[in-house]
């Protein structure tokens, strides 16, 4: 078993470890607390990690089941080439409390690894198992589509939601203040 490109310093087939949830081994044994527990029953996606490149809920996986596999957690996404995705989430203001974000990013990374030209619907499907209670989700989609376009060398169009974050890097510029209608 390798986690974030490195072999783990224990035997994942040891009976006690093998029967422990992957999430607990990551958090308690390896100190990788980026993966979160939001429900423990596979319904929120806060614990999502990549297992051989595919997104899975680590609260539903026993360590023994992945003893020979390659695990990537949020802490390993940059090394796997997804630093641009992480940066896009910050730039698109897709992050509020952030507790869902490790799982959300992992699911998005899995999508981008199998589909270089995702449409908005593809992001919706990929994130169907990731609950976020703070945002309205659409900035996640904006960020993913933005990154996919940038990786292809294209500039995305404005998504028209009023936050002016369509064109790459527009957020933070003076014209992105969202204030349109005149008042007072």
């Amino acid at each position: 078993m390798r986690v974030n490109g490195r072999p783990v310093p224990f035997d994942p087939r040891d009976p006690q470890l093998a029967a422990t949830r992957l999430l607990d081994v990551l958090r308690d044994r390896l100190g990788l607390t980026g993966s979160k527990e939001g429900c423990g029953v596979g319904e929120c996606g806060a614990c999502a990690v990549l297992i051989d490149g595919r997104s899975a809920c680590s609260c539903l996986v026993l360590t023994g089941q992945v003893a020979g596999n390659e695990i990537t957690t949020v802490e390993g996404l940059a090394d796997r080439g997804h630093g641009d995705l992480q940066a896009a989430f910050v730039r698109h203001h897709a992050v509020q409390c952030g507790y869902c974000i490790p799982g959300v990013l992992t699911s998005c990374a899995a999508l981008l690894e199998r589909n270089a030209t995702p449409q908005r619907d593809d992001v919706t499907t990929a994130l169907g198992g990731n609950l976020c209670r703070c945002t309205g989700y659409q900035r996640f989609t904006d960020a993913v589509c933005d990154v996919a376009a940038a990786r292809r060398g294209a500039a995305p169009a404005d998504d028209g939601d009023g936050d002016g974050d369509g064109p790459v890097g527009a957020v933070g510029s003076a014209n992105s203040d969202g204030q349109r209608a005149g008042g007072s």
Binding site: L32, T33, G34, S35, T73, V74, E75, L77, A78, Q86, A87, F89, V90, V95, G98, I101, P102, L105
Partner: peptide
């Protein structure tokens, strides 16, 4: 934000 997206 940067600490959130890296899991730190």
């Amino acid at each position: 934000g940067a600490e959130i997206v890296t899991g730190e």
